[in-house]
């Protein structure tokens, strides 16, 4: 039989940023195997900046090659790398003052996992990755004695856009009320929560009544009907954003189940066109066979009644509910 599971997903956002007149050449340089600094009076800033960090005056772009060797000014050893770090084995992060620069770059030093190899004042040298994308992560550093000779093939176009896919893995148990709601769906039941203050029934319950500011628990839970009334609908024409899995238009509706006070939103209808939908139409949930039900798409934040638990919603044959009786629930 299908079972409940912990929430485990990665929330991701793809960021693209323009690079500007100073960072652009810096990232182009890294892609091409060179490190550039920005002149600022008689100093050279690396990482380069568009402004004088002391006076905040705008600097005319004037980049000069620095490194590839440099000296460690400060360091710390990362015993437990995160998923976002440049190495998956322990490594050092360091302030590296590159030869020819007057300020230090923060970057990673790979000593093969040996913290004893790190020290303030040590000499390091840049190494470039085989695959380079015009990112600060195209480069890393090693102790000077470990540096390999590299032949880097320059790219064609200057780097004017940088792409950064950020992401955070979210991993936690289902909250108790979410677990009971999800188990209900696996059992072919819709579980709601009845406010102890107002008597209103919310589906799915959130663990509280936000109108009365009271927490709600298992003793407030009720099984509600799987027959209800359409209170709102729309047709979705999927925009192909990052992470989109839908390709064809489809109908999504909100259904107010009998005996409840809050419609369940986001119910997907695959076997009717938007022209066939009406506010007020009476529909019944036709559940999937128990062994075919899944609540994998239900987490603590999203997921009401997913398609993975029902086969379809079908008309009950009852007359429509007049729309003006539903206006309090039009969402």
């Amino acid at each position: 039989m299908p079972q409940l599971h912990d929430v485990d997903y990665t929330l991701e956002y793809p960021y693209t940023r323009t690079t500007g007149p100073v960072i652009g050449p810096f990232l182009t340089g890294l892609r091409d195997g060179r490190i550039l600094g920005q002149r600022c009076g008689d100093r050279v800033l690396c990482p380069p900046m568009e402004f004088d960090p002391d006076t905040f005056a705008t600097l005319v772009p004037d980049l000069v090659e620095v490194g590839p060797g440099g000296e460690v000014e400060n360091w710390t050893w990362v015993a437990e790398p995160s998923a976002k770090h440049p190495f998956d084995r322990p490594f050092g992060f360091a302030f590296i003052k590159l030869d020819g620069a007057d300020t230090a770059l923060v970057h990673a030093v790979d000593t093969g996992g040996d913290p004893e190899a790190m020290s303030t004042g040590m000499r390091v040298q840049a190494q470039f990755r085989d695959e380079r994308h015009g990112s600060v992560a195209d480069v890393y550093f090693v102790p000077e004695a470990d540096a390999a000779q590299q032949v880097i093939e320059p790219g064609d176009e200057p780097v004017t856009i940088t792409e950064h896919l950020i992401g955070l893995r979210i991993n936690e148990p289902l909250y108790p009320h979410r677990a009971r709601f999800a188990q209900g769906l696996l059992d072919g039941k819709i579980i709601g929560q009845r406010s102890p203050v107002t008597g209103k029934v919310y589906v799915p319950g959130r663990g509280y009544d936000n109108m009365s500011r009271v927490l709600m628990g298992e003793s407030d839970e009720v099984e509600v009907s799987d027959v209800g009334t359409v209170v709102a609908f729309t047709e979705l024409n999927p925009v192909q954003y990052y992470g989109q899995t839908e390709t064809e238009p489809y109908v999504r509706c909100s259904i107010l189940f009998d005996g409840t006070d809050q419609p369940v939103i986001g119910i997907d209808i695959r076997d009717m066109t938007v022209d066939e939908m009406r506010v007020g139409m009476r529909m019944r949930c036709i559940w999937r066979d128990p062994e075919e039900r899944s609540v994998e798409d239900i987490d603590n934040r999203y997921g009401n009644i997913p398609e993975t638990v029902y086969a379809r919603f079908e008309l009950t044959g009852e007359p429509d509910v007049p729309a003006d009786q539903l206006k309090e629930h039009s969402w």
Partner: peptide
Amino acid sequence: SPGSYREGFSLQTDPYVHAPIGLDPRT
């Protein structure tokens, strides 16, 4: 508790020269 503050808060850093190498608050 559901995520990783080291990874999340690395995004408070400079988006060009620090965030892409995951420069985190503990570092």
